[in-house]
């Protein structure tokens, strides 16, 4: 067991939020946002599950001083943070829900401590974003990713402004709590740039077949970042996985089509052994 001081440190570092009781459901946000992106999904599960939310170091309200460029130069750095949270809260039998790059981060974490995890739900996952012809289609050419990173550099000045939106009151939007308004997806631009590089240059194809935990793959119909071929590839590589093609389009069905996302998740959780 970890000492209470160490536990608190981890919970502050990753801005961990826990509520509800039952089997733990751990939500991991994707690149570019923070735990707020789950707020359309959570109400459907908080009565049955213990909801665990967090922000990656450098995102949302995490402790930015804990950022270490070396540690986070690899998705394993983020995966180890997830395991730290899991250990700090002593979570077992976890339903892991990841979006985008977090799917592979969750996969890496589950390979290290498989006994902690019960089911994996991957929303818009990709094992590798860059094509590796002829055997693999990831959706992008290397030059596209280079262009993206250049754009991020170019937008650096703008991004600093964009990614840390001013804290404001929202009298005209009472549905947004004050706390929410304070931290919309705010991310440090330098960290976002490195996260983008680590994400879009990652290649986890070899790790897929190591996963022995049941997995649901939610794939949008028209997802630029994770095209259909990627979903099919993942289903083939992960034994015991279920692929569901959603009616929803885009890369963020949990925000654009929460009802469909919730339905597919619930059905899977109800039927998967």
């Amino acid at each position: 067991m970890l000492k209470q001081v160490a536990v608190n440190e981890i919970l502050v570092k990753n801005n961990v939020k826990v509520f509800g009781t039952g089997q733990p459901m751990l939500f991991a946000h994707g690149f570019g946002c923070d735990q707020n992106m789950w707020r359309f999904i959570i109400p459907a599960f908080e009565k049955q599950y213990k909801i665990v939310l967090f922000d990656y170091v450098g995102s949302g309200k995490s402790d930015i001083t804990a950022y270490n460029a070396e540690k986070y130069s690899d998705l394993n750095g983020y995966a180890n943070d997830i395991l730290d949270i899991v250990t700090a809260l002593d979570l077992n039998d976890i339903v892991f829900v990841g979006h985008s790059v977090s799917c592979m981060i969750g996969l890496l974490a589950s390979l290290k401590q498989p006994n902690r995890f019960n089911k994996m739900i991957f929303i818009g996952p990709s094992a590798r974003y860059i094509n590796d012809q002829p055997s693999y289609i990831g959706g992008f050419e290397r030059k596209d990713i280079k262009e993206l990173l250049e754009t991020m550099d170019k937008n650096y000045i703008g991004w600093a402004n964009f990614l840390a939106p001013a804290i404001m009151k929202n009298p005209d939007k009472p549905e947004l709590g004050e706390e929410l308004a304070a931290s919309f997806c705010s991310t440090d631009p330098v960290i976002a740039r490195q996260f983008a590089e680590v994400t879009f240059l990652s290649d986890n194809r070899e790790d897929l077949s190591k996963l022995k935990i049941p997995a649901l793959i939610l794939q949008c119909s028209d997802d630029l970042i994770a095209p259909l071929e990627v979903g099919t590839y993942l289903e083939q590589q992960i034994s015991g996985s279920t692929l569901k093609i959603m009616k929803a389009t885009g890369h963020c069905p949990h925000m654009s089509a929460p009802a469909e996302t919730i339905e597919l998740m619930s059905n899977y959780l109800a039927t998967a052994s």
């Binding site: 946002c33 308004a181 963020c252 925000m255």
Partner: peptide, 18 residues
């Protein structure tokens, strides 16, 4: 292309949430 990634990962989530 990079604008599309940016749209999916940042702009849409921001507009949707904010």
């Amino acid at each position: 292309l990079s604008g599309r990634i940016f749209y999916q990962t940042h702009l849409y989530p921001l507009v949707k949430l904010h």
